[in-house]
């Protein structure tokens, strides 16, 4: 059996009293790339926020590397090895790019921070020239690179990305996914939530389709499972993909 890296079992979560997502279960293994796609309001972001501990679980549990992490606060989950790029990027606007990145490894010594910074710059060479620039002055694509870079600075085994392509021009999206595809040499698992279904499914080995707070379909083969446009948007009613979700 392949080691489970992240395991969700019957997770329900939401805001106030009513759950937005219900009974979500899936397993990710080491180095796996999983995309969660679906229309606005399907509960994708809520799912990530529950995984990261931004909102409490109402039911179910979240395990990372075999240990229950469902009650840990967000920073503790990050320190366990889950890198997180929240929706909206959440950079430190008035700090320079270098500080933004280094704060992702604030618990490490200076030498280790420098080493990781070099690694991140190797992935996003464009950031080299921008190290001294304040984050708020970057373009959307550059900001997204900093956000991913900052998450990588913590040395994660799992990277969680919430809609990285939002507001980016198609060319920039392509560039971003090209960089993501080269990450971690198969060791780093990536969980990504996207509306840009094609980009996400070209990148991920597996996709889960969410709607109405539940997982309603899955696409297994890389690149092959891009649901038809109209089906994805719900204009036609037919099963999104051949393989049903594991319950």
């Amino acid at each position: 059996m392949n080691e489970a890296l992240l395991e969700l079992e019957g997770v329900s979560a939401g805001y106030g009293r009513l759950p937005v997502i219900r009974g979500i279960s899936f397993i990710m293994t080491e180095g796996e790339r999983l995309a969660i796609i679906g229309p606005n309001g399907a509960g994708k972001t809520t799912l990530l926020r529950a995984v990261m501990g931004e909102i409490p679980l109402m039911r179910g549990c979240v395990r990372f590397e075999g240990e229950e992490i469902g009650t840990l606060p967000l920073p503790a989950r990050v320190r366990r090895g889950i890198g997180y790029c929240p929706a909206g990027r959440r950079l430190f606007p008035e700090l320079p790019v270098r500080d933004n990145l280094e704060l992702g490894a604030h618990g490490e010594g200076r030498r280790e921070r420098e080493r990781r910074l070099e690694q991140v710059l190797a992935i996003f060479p464009r950031l080299h020239l921008l190290l001294a620039r304040r984050a708020e002055l970057l373009s959307g694509g550059e900001q997204q690179m900093v956000a991913i870079g900052r998450a990588l600075m913590g040395g994660p085994r799992l990277l969680v990305l919430d809609e990285p392509s939002t507001g980016l021009a198609p060319r920039v999206v392509h560039e971003l996914y090209a960089a993501l595809a080269g990450l971690g040499a198969g060791r780093l698992a990536i969980l990504i939530v996207e509306q840009n279904a094609r980009a996400a499914l070209r990148f991920a080995a597996r996709g889960l389709l969410m709607s109405g707070g539940e997982i309603t379909g899955a696409a297994e083969a890389k690149g092959a499972g891009v649901p038809h446009f109209e089906t994805y948007l719900g204009l036609k009613r037919e099963p999104a993909c051949e393989t049903p979700t594991r319950a």
Binding site: P170, R171, H174, A197, V226, Y232
Partner: peptide, 15 residues
């Protein structure tokens, strides 16, 4: 419109 929503079908744009 389809491209705007789903991202371009072909990757013909240079990175």
């Amino acid at each position: 419109v389809i491209d705007a929503y789903l991202g371009p079908e072909r990757l013909d744009v240079a990175a």
